[in-house]
Simulated scan of single mutants.
Amino acid sequence: MRPRSPFVTTSTQPFHLSIPESQLVDLRRRLELTRWPDPETVGDWSQGVPLVQAKALVEHWLTKYDWRRCEAMLNGLGQFTTEIDGVAIHFLHVRSKHENAMPMIMTHGWPGSVIEFHKVIGPLTDPTAHGGKAEDAFHLVIPSLPGYGFSGKPPKAGWGVQKIASVWAELMSRLGYGRYVAQGGDWGSLVTTNLGALRPEGLAAIHVNLPVVLPADLGNKFSTEEAAMLGALQHYDRWDSGYSKQQSTRPQTVGYGLADSPSGQAMWIYEKFWKWMDCNGDPLSVLAADEILDNVMLYWLSNSAASSARLYWESYHDGFIAVQLALPVGCSIFAKEIYRAPRSWAERCMSNLIYWNEVPKGGHFAAFEQPGLFVDELRNCFRLVR
């Protein structure tokens, strides 16, 4: 048993997840009635999820997957909600048994969720039980982004990454943490970066595994590493950005199909695990089908296809340009990330870059794919500011 948080206040309530059975019955009915498209005309994933793999994942969902297992896991970790600026924020709050543990807020992205972090919670909060030292312990706050999972859905525009960063600062203050660090990847990297730029009282350092370092003024001369990042971004724009163009321009439209079809919602996410993980073209070689479906279920059960996509509409077009950071920053560059940020650009926007490491394996979903390496990165980075 992990200790419950002593920081529960009148504005923070325990959250117990209990999905009505009627929703699971409806899910099974929709899966059974899936109308499948024609198969792809190529022998790989280059046109999207191949029909054979799509049918296999849905068959597993129908016949072998157990949501109640995932529900029990989340309830066992300790879930809470608190309302900030009119939106309910859902978060995991797992406190270490070690007295001098460092508080850390960790932020997921799209198409991820708090599920991404479930394999690193134990090692980070209880290092002595996982081959580490007591002095490496963390208290963890892991919120669901607004519009994602079991957080509330902002009823009006204005909830971009800068707004979310200010909400995270309020959350950590509300929980009573006077000194803490922050970590994030994907959208979580942008939220964490903006939290670092805001630098609220108590924030000691940040760590990101998708550094936002693209200069506003590129110039015309590039190192090998800088040119490689630009090449990766060009490849992404040509072959991998269809989802982001849709979500950043018409999130409501894409929501109709994904909210109505669980198979459609699953494949919208599954394809990104194939493309962005270090998996040699086979997502199931790194993650179990149940793990992928746990993550999909947080979108399906909360009907958050449109509300999660709106973060792209809010922040995608101007959110990825580097901002100046003066507080201590650590970066981990995983081998198969969407792009591998060059240190030269990081140093231009991070004046106090305390940690930089290029990790030999792992991709965009680092904590999910390579939990051991991910934990090592956070321990090594934040030892420098304890």
Rank of each mutant, 00 (worst) to 15 (best):
S344E: 15
D126K: 13
P251S: 13
S285E: 01
D237I: 02
W268P: 10
T63M: 03
F15C: 05
G185M: 07
R310I: 04
P360Y: 07
I121T: 05
S151C: 00
S173D: 11
V52N: 12
S189E: 14
V213T: 12
S96A: 05
H235K: 15
F91S: 04
S11R: 04
M1E: 01
F222G: 05
Q162A: 11
F382Y: 14
S344R: 05
A346Y: 11
K336F: 00
L140I: 07
D85N: 13
Q23K: 02
V114C: 01
N194T: 05
V359W: 03
W345L: 04
N194W: 06
A322V: 06
A266H: 02
E225R: 11
R310K: 09
D66C: 10
D237Y: 14
R348C: 07
A56Y: 05
P200W: 00
A305E: 14
M73W: 08
H90N: 09
E314I: 06
G48N: 06
R35M: 13
W300H: 12
I206W: 09
K119E: 15
S308L: 02
E21W: 01
A205Y: 05
M172C: 13
F222Q: 08
A134N: 10
L190E: 06
C381L: 04
V329T: 13
R30L: 15
K336M: 12
N380W: 01
L203Y: 00
I84Q: 08
G78I: 06
V58R: 09
K272A: 11
Q47A: 03
L62K: 12
M297L: 08
E291S: 05
G178Q: 07
D44E: 00
L62C: 03
R340V: 02
Q252S: 13
S241Y: 01
T125P: 09
P143S: 05
A134F: 07
V323F: 03
L258I: 13
L298Q: 09
G330N: 08
I115M: 10
